[in-house]
Design a binder for these strands. Structure first.
Lengths: 233, 233
DNA sequence: ACAAAAGTGTTCGACATACACCCATGG
DNA sequence: CCATGGGTGTATGTCGAACACTTTTGT
């Protein structure tokens, strides 16, 4: 039996497995992506997604969380698998497949410091530079998945601060879908789901000020269980 | 530079990369899945998806096509990546991540012979046996993706013979969504897309006989380009 | 007082759903 | 002649899309 096992696995090829993180953030009404300068040859100094090799005893998801924590200092970030990239010669160095995972994080000044220390930069999603290897493709694919997911799940809330205004939320959806939405219809729909809690405070960055809301995770979980369809667009 | 490269890759862990195929077929109004008896330890003799290790110089997609051709004799099968499974200890043998890909094929007698030669079996989707490792999960995930995809793309046609009747198509969608559809509404919707060509012939397995149709790939491509939404349910 | 963004309802059209009967044929 | 599955049209409701004006307040 141990013999069988050896026979079966031994002649097979091993290869590197990496994970690359597509890190989305939202700021100033813009969807942004965190990229950084590659620190190793080949292609040293080029813009790249951040990633890492997966260790022999490490879940692929854990590898991505590890990387993310190193860069941003944040734990338990919302993250989801996008897809894998397995072309034989996608990496000119060695054979290496990559599992792309996308993350949604709240941009704030604390994160920014950490990020800058690692030579990283937040780019607006439609002003991305050329990235190494197949990383531009990875971003495109992840953005598609994000759009798709946002149709059915209130995913956007991961990208906003805890308290946010309806106009901010609308800006976010406009940034994801890259098209303008009608303010009245948007407000109507988003409130109809009953997963937003209106607070007493106002955000006063505009003249008039807009009421702040927070997301009601509890109610949302209940809705999900009852087979709810959370479409938004 | 070559030194840099070595430093960077050398200390990293290599592992096995496999691909597992979730092979859907359609027959007798039933959505079916092709599974087979595992021929190697551990878990020899248990039901399993069919898969293979990816070779060092082989695209992951190519590995899946290779496996599929070995078993069914078919080339260029419709196949799409489902997701990857990367838990550290998912395979009790060695560290091995797997890229799951699902395929849609037309079941016919020719295939069946080849398939039986490999100890494989077509199971109805809701009567699956226990499969090894995380393979039941893989099937569930792939079925979700299939449902999702079927909403927006006329994916079902991959599972039917070239010529098919509207009732057959309806049965297929009923099998995928696992719910009954209204015949009049279904016919109306599916014809409204103008991608079916009605033939003169009839399928005569029923008393009255139903007109055969074929899928108009050309028109469909045009529709897709013009940003068409092909929802069906 | 005016500029700038927040907030608020109604109408219209499109599309999904529900629903029942006649038709063609083989046995 | 009857059992079986194929084929057809209409009425109703729901939901998304379009649309304009008033409110608040900082400058």
């Amino acid at each position: 039996m141990s013999g069988d096992l050896k026979d079966f696995y031994a002649p097979q090829d091993k290869m590197y497995v990496a994970t690359d993180c597509i890190i989305f953030g939202f700021e100033d009404g813009q969807l942004k992506l965190l990229v950084f300068k590659r620190r190793v040859e080949p292609l040293k100094g080029e813009w790249s997604l951040i990633g890492s090799f997966v260790k022999i005893d490490e879940d692929v998801e854990a590898a991505a969380q590890r990387v993310l924590e190193e860069i941003t200092g944040l734990k338990n970030i919302f993250m989801e698998q996008s897809r894998s990239y397995g072309a034989a010669h996608r990496d000119p160095g060695y054979r290496c497949i990559s599992i792309a995972q996308y993350a949604l994080i709240r941009i704030n000044d604390y994160d920014k410091e950490l990020v800058e220390k690692h030579g990283a930069h937040w780019y607006e999603i439609d002003e991305l530079p050329n990235l190494v290897l197949d990383h531009n493709q990875m971003v495109e694919d992840a953005l598609d998945k994000l759009k798709q997911k946002a149709r059915y799940q209130p995913i956007g809330f991961e990208l906003l601060p805890e308290k946010f205004t309806i106009p901010q939320l609308q800006q976010l959806y406009e940034a994801i879908y890259q098209k303008e939405l009608d303010a009245r219809n948007f407000r109507k729909k988003v409130l109809s789901h009953n997963v937003l809690i209106k607070l007493e405070e106002k955000d006063k960055t505009s003249r008039r000020g807009a009421f702040l809301y927070k997301f009601d995770h509890r109610t949302y979980q209940k809705l999900l269980k009852s087979g709810y369809n959370f479409e938004m667009s």
